[in-house]
């Protein structure tokens, strides 16, 4: 069993992908300034807090964000480049690093594309049909979010491990799931399953089935209806779900750590490699990989903001 020996390293790694989760830091709008009535200069606007208190609250928020989000990000990049740009790129072109990047991309590609299909199907079933056990299904979709990732990984060990349910059979047929790509993919798929389905269900419920019915009455087949009507209507929500799913798939540590086996150059993903390198005091290499993950987080954040704006526009259009 692999253990999470070094807490410090996993913190650095957590930092790297934390911003992609639910840190919805929207700045408070400055509408108050515009809305201020023509009151006497001495009179305080009673609809808001007094100036000093306002300043204090804003300052607290800024300090908190600086210490817990900005500073760690700066540290990641500073440590990565502490021996110069050559050492940074040398660390990234190590065979182990390249193998970890390749594996991470492969796992993300597998789990995102499968979850894309599963997510659309699940959202479709939930939003367009009525059936018994629907509420139960919605709860099940949320399960991976509420279970600790370590447990998610452990489940697959219990199923496919040497002592697990299918362990003997798998060994007899020489099929490797645990400590190999299939196991890592399975654990990642499990952990990232809710993203696509969750981002689609409210959207599809709101849109209803009228446009699909219209398409069918105009002679469209089921596939034509899906690709010409349903998919274009959900595309921004779908991209949003895929983006979050991808960020989590690339950054997942706990579940993957349990099933990976940490075979160097073979089953180490980028987050796992960050920890291993850190534990071996290869700080530059460790933070170089971590900086890639941090960049992924930043890109995700930017794209997420753009997509959210698109989704809001779509909402306005569909409102009337």
């Amino acid at each position: 069993m692999p253990t999470q020996s070094n807490l410090a390293s996993s913190t650095a790694q957590v930092r790297a992908y934390a911003p992609t989760a639910d840190l919805n830091v929207s700045s408070p709008p400055s509408q108050r300034e515009k809305a201020r009535p023509h009151a006497a200069a001495s009179q305080r606007d009673l609809r808001t807090e007094p100036g000093p208190i306002r300043f204090l609250i804003i300052a607290l928020a800024v300090i908190f964000l600086t210490v817990f989000v900005v500073l760690p990000l700066v540290v990641v990049f500073a440590s990565a480049f502490s021996r110069g740009i050559t050492a940074y790129f040398a660390a990234l072109s190590e065979p182990e690093a390249l193998s970890a990047i390749r594996l991470t991309l492969l796992i993300a590609a597998i789990s995102v594309s499968l979850n894309l299909i599963f997510g659309v199907i699940a959202a479709w079933a939930i939003s367009k049909f009525d059936f018994a056990g629907k509420t139960f299904l919605i709860t099940l979709i949320d399960l991976p979010f509420s279970v600790s990732p370590v447990i998610s990984g452990l489940v697959f060990v219990l199923l496919f491990g040497a002592q697990g349910f299918f362990g003997t059979w798998l060994q007899a047929h020489n099929i490797h799931i645990l400590f190999a790509v299939p196991g890592i993919a399975l654990a990642t798929i499990f952990v990232t399953f809710p993203f696509v389905a969750r981002s689609l269900i409210p959207l599809m419920q709101e849109q209803g089935t009228q446009e699909e019915e219209a398409a069918i009455s105009l002679g469209a087949s089921g596939l034509q209806t899906f690709f010409r009507v349903t998919l274009p209507n959900i595309k921004w929500g779908l991209l949003y779900g895929v983006l979050l799913c991808n960020a989590r798939a690339m950054g997942e540590f706990g579940a993957v750590s349990v099933v990976s086996g940490h075979i160097r150059g073979e089953t180490n993903t980028m987050p796992l490699l960050v920890e291993i390198l850190y534990n071996e005091y290869q700080f530059v290499a460790s933070f170089a990989i971590a900086s890639l993950l941090a960049m992924l987080a930043l890109i995700t954040l930017i794209v997420k903001t753009i997509l959210e704006r698109r989704l809001d526009e779509g909402q306005i259009v569909s409102d009337d």
Binding site: Q210, E211, E213, A214, A215, I216, S217, L218, G219, A220, S221, V229, P232, N233, V317, S318
Partner: peptide, 20 residues
């Protein structure tokens, strides 16, 4: 099925394809 009946249907809330 509805797609084979060759029936023109106008929906109460029009159901126009919003992205077209």
């Amino acid at each position: 099925g509805a797609s084979e009946r060759h029936v023109g249907f106008v929906f109460q809330h029009y159901a126009l394809f919003r992205h077209m």
